[in-house]
């Protein structure tokens, strides 16, 4: 007990010598060790030393987007987990909840983010967007409108878009998993 103050001093000098690992990195490291194995999702770290920037590849095995391969970039600020990761779709895709710029509308990446959430929660959320696109919360209003009115027509257009087709004047990127 008496030695706690001197211990604190030693700790402080020790901490100064160590290279600074940010709180965000420490927390992210924990998120990554707790990350579940998903058969339809893989992560890719272009620079393994940089945990704050990585890519996610989703290959849905059912639903409207089966057969596609979708790329997302994750940019995590040093304020994580107080701020949600910035997630963008790197391709131009036909999806009610993704606009043609790649912005993603997922509640937990925006207004419903809370710091007790982790990467697992975001990955599950993104996967769900491809299984069950949500017409109620659209970024691509035309796609959402079509999904609401006529699921079959939407399914056809989703499949057309993945092959690099043009829908109502917009040409989408070819995102098929098989070349």
């Amino acid at each position: 007990m008496l030695k706690i103050w001197s211990m604190k001093k030693n700790e402080e000098t020790a901490a100064k010598k160590k290279p600074k690992v940010s709180a965000a990195q420490i927390r992210l490291q924990k998120d990554l060790t707790e990350l579940e194995e998903f058969k339809t999702m893989t992560t890719d770290f272009p620079d393994p030393a940089d945990l704050l920037h990585f890519n996610l590849i989703i290959t849905p095995d059912e639903g409207f987007y089966k057969g596609g391969k979708f790329l997302f970039s994750f940019n995590i600020s040093t304020n994580y987990p107080h701020e949600p990761p910035k997630v963008k779709c790197m391709q131009k895709i036909y999806h009610p909840n993704v606009d043609t710029e790649g912005n993603v509308c997922l509640n937990i990446l925006r207004e419903d983010w809370k710091p007790v959430l982790n990467l697992n929660a975001i990955l599950v959320g993104l996967q769900f967007l491809f299984l069950e696109p949500n017409a109620e919360d659209p970024l691509n209003k035309e796609a959402a409108e079509e999904l609401r009115r006529d699921r079959e027509a939407f399914a056809k257009n989703a499949s057309l878009s993945m092959r690099g087709g043009t829908i109502r004047g917009q040409t989408y990127e070819r995102v098929l998993a098989t070349p």
């Binding site: 706690i4 604190k8 700790e11 901490a15 420490i26 927390r27 998120d31 987990p81 107080h82 007790v116």
Partner: peptide, 17 residues
């Protein structure tokens, strides 16, 4: 702690002890 995921007996990421 649900925020930093460090145990309660450990300290938050900004503290050292």
């Amino acid at each position: 702690c649900g925020i930093c995921r460090v145990s309660f007996e450990g300290c938050c990421p900004t503290c050292k002890m």
